[in-house]
Nucleic acid binder design. Structure first.
Lengths: 233, 233
DNA sequence: CGTCAGATTGATCTGTGTCAAACCCAGTGG
DNA sequence: CCACTGGGTTTGACACAGATCAATCTGACG
């Protein structure tokens, strides 16, 4: 166990924040960041749970978090993963509602907590920021709509292929070509929206068809084109 | 065929618009509405198709429209229905992308077209409007996320019940207690995300269980509590 | 009264979920 | 250093919700 994780200072956080929100003047940013709390989370920590009242949103300084909803009998449906530079939880702030998702860290992570009043103030006072945030919300909205159609219409086989491609795209590859985002089969199946066993069987099918190489949770895509075809593009 | 449908004038449109966006000062609204085009659509008209470039968004002055995506083999997945006072298509404007959904009128409708530059201008110049719009986007986002979980996890039987309740809630009831929103079985099944035959069978199950009364597309909910239970609440 | 879209019912077929059992491997503690 | 443990992975057998296909029925409308 490492101790004494050194948290990034306010300036480092601001710099990273600026990479996502490019057009915010320094003054606004400085003001915002006096109100932010930086905290590190061990892998597997719960950041917040569905239904709780969060008094702000979060900015991912480093690490990866999983955003999910819990259904009957505790089965998770993973909505998305967020990584360095992403912001999440703003929906609840804007709507002034309790969280509609739960969040858990998939790796050791450093998150910046932006209190609701600070976020709302910036939105109301800086149209550029409001616009940037709206961009993000609208992107997520488009993704969600697509996701609805896919879950409703595509076979699990197609969706798994699609999600592998999406993960490769969003999180990139290791040097050896395997997916950087390293999920348990359970998380993978909860993302696809199916049973763990099904994912395992399908991956094994892909393997025999020479589409992927995989042992355990390490997955390498061998034939992107064919996978795209299976995914239905 | 009726002829000469009288279109609402600019003032009527503004008034209706103001019901949805309450805090916009008159000056801004007047300015906006000089740039708007009002048009009536016969029932069953396509407003725009997925993948096309729309140069603005729409405000529903009257009528009901269906927002959907088309999957492989032309099967539709209905995302939502919009009615009087709703605004749609803004996602594409904000993202400056082509439409990710198609829109068709379910009844004779009057829509106001708001050109992209006018919408963007108002967003950038009026933080209150930006905020209102963000509210709408975030509401839709929450709905979509919930929908993803439901489609992935619930049985079709549960989802059908849920959707009937949702329709009753969003669109209200006729005097005789039947749902105001009158869908074909096909639309209903495309909303639930299942086959038409399945919806028919399930409705018939509900009927024998005394949960609904239904002939053809007329549906009356008899036992809301039990339906909620089936829907999984 | 014919026509045609939509509604309905019945008879299969199959993709996935579920259950059960075994396996693998990393970390722990004796 | 090795057995023990437990979480995650894998495989097999089986059941069933829901899709698909085919046929008939209904009712609105020209």
């Amino acid at each position: 166990m490492k101790e004494n994780v050194v948290l990034p200072d306010s300036i480092q956080c601001r710099e990273r924040f600026r990479q996502t929100f490019k057009e915010i003047p320094d003054d606004d940013l400085k003001q915002l960041f006096t109100q932010i709390t930086v905290k590190d989370y061990k892998k597997g920590s719960i950041v917040y749970k569905e239904g709780t009242r969060i008094k702000g949103c979060y900015f991912v300084y480093s690490g990866i978090v999983k955003i999910f909803q819990t259904g009957k009998e505790g089965k998770e449906q993973i909505i998305k993963f967020e990584q360095e530079g992403d912001i999440f939880g703003f929906r609840s702030v804007i709507r002034q509602e309790s969280a509609c998702t739960s969040v858990e860290t998939l790796s050791d992570s450093v998150l910046c907590h932006i209190p609701d009043f600070a976020l709302l103030h910036l939105i109301k006072s800086n149209p550029d920021f409001a616009y940037d945030l709206m961009q993000i919300a609208c992107k997520e909205l488009g993704d969600s709509n697509k996701c609805i159609k896919d879950i409703a219409q595509k076979s699990v086989k197609a969706r798994l292929a699609e999600i592998l491609l999406l993960i490769a795209n969003d999180f990139g590859l290791e040097n050896d070509g395997s997916l950087k985002l390293n999920l348990t089969q359970e998380d993978l199946s909860n993302f696809v929206g199916t049973a763990t066993e099904t994912v395992i069987r399908l991956l094994s099918d892909y393997r025999t068809d020479g589409l992927v190489e995989s042992k355990g949770r390490k997955i390498k895509l061998l034939n992107i084109e064919k996978l795209k075809k299976i995914a239905g593009y």
